[in-house]
Computed example of a mutant assay.
Amino acid sequence: MAATMFRIGGDLGVRRLGFGAMHLPTEPGPARETSLAVARRAVELGVTLIDTAYLYGGGANEELLAEALHPYPEGLLITTKVGIAPSGPSHEWRLDGRPAVLRAQVEQALRRLRVERIELLQLHRIDPETPLADQLGTLRDLQTEGKIDRIGLSEVTVDELDQARGIIDVASVQNRYNLLDREHEPVLAACEAAGIAFLPWRPVAWGESGAAAEIATVAAELGATPTQVALAWLLGHSPVILPIPGTARMDHLEENLAAEDLALSRPHRDRLDRLTAPA
């Protein structure tokens, strides 16, 4: 059975199987009430890592989590992301890592989340039009000021991770990754070597029918669901992986978290490993 805990940055202990809040509806009405209930239930079930971002509703997702969970229970980590902003007359979202924008988004996140410090702040994407040193230097300054504690990255290559580690201590990386999409296997390997938390977004995804059928077969043999198999595979694949499956449904939340108790045998894992070759 894979270890259930991980220390981000070497000291911030969280349960490895977390919750992604992106899919929670935030508009007033019954769907929002369900969102509040799902967030609260996640914490009741022992989730200590919740992922959000400014991009998710322009901060509305952060406000929802604060409404649901503040004052936060001890040990709960809500990590958010900055670096994407609406721009132009049509207010289309685009990468924006300019120092003033990053600083403003962090200040706004502090207010919306009702905290004095963000324990883990991730750069949502590297803005190619702004020098990396300026982007990470701004976050490092905010860290020095005590407004953020740990800094993470999202959707980076091995080279970008190496460059960033020359400027800051990288506590986490959030890249797209799942059983059938292992494009970022080299980044995961680099994170594992350095003890950096790897938060796969889209941790559950289905590919061609043959692969999906094999996952379903393994699930049937174990009395589990395909989603649980995919999450259990992630937990056993690397000790630095912290999956953050998202859902707006209570039953799916409970299904996801139950994956932590699913033990994959070596033969089952070998069959799943063969579904796609690591990059």
Rank of each mutant, 00 (worst) to 15 (best):
E74A: 14
A31E: 15
W201I: 04
A2F: 15
G246Q: 03
L132H: 07
H268E: 09
T276K: 11
A219M: 00
R112C: 10
A197V: 02
D11P: 11
L69C: 08
S209I: 09
L120D: 10
R40Y: 06
D11C: 02
R271W: 00
H70N: 09
T26P: 03
L24F: 07
R94N: 06
D141F: 07
E260R: 14
L262K: 02
E74Y: 02
R41E: 15
A171L: 02
G195T: 00
L136N: 06
E208N: 05
E74L: 08
A39P: 12
L235I: 09
Y56S: 03
A3N: 12
R15G: 10
E119G: 10
G29W: 04
R41Q: 11
R202F: 14
A248G: 12
I167C: 09
L36Q: 11
E255W: 02
V204L: 06
E185P: 10
L222K: 13
I241A: 02
L153D: 04
P73Y: 10
P186G: 08
V204D: 06
C191N: 01
T52D: 11
A66V: 13
L180F: 00
E254M: 11
R41H: 11
G223Q: 08
L110R: 13
Y56M: 03
L139S: 14
R182E: 03
L102M: 08
P25K: 02
P99K: 12
S238H: 04
A42F: 12
L199V: 15
R32Q: 13
G13Q: 15
E67K: 09
L17M: 12
R117N: 11
E63H: 08
I118S: 13
G207F: 00
H70S: 14
L49G: 03
V14R: 05
G152L: 04
L272H: 01
G97M: 03
P99S: 10
L69S: 10
L153Y: 04
A263S: 14
T138G: 08
L262E: 04
F198V: 05
R269F: 04
A104S: 14
W233R: 02
R182C: 00
T225Q: 07
E255K: 08
D273R: 06
I148T: 15
P245R: 07
E74T: 10
P200Q: 01
E145A: 12
L120R: 09
E255V: 05
H124Y: 13
E74F: 01
G236N: 01
R7L: 12
R266H: 14
T26Q: 07
L65R: 09
P278I: 02
F6A: 07
A21L: 08
P278C: 02
P99Y: 10
D270F: 09
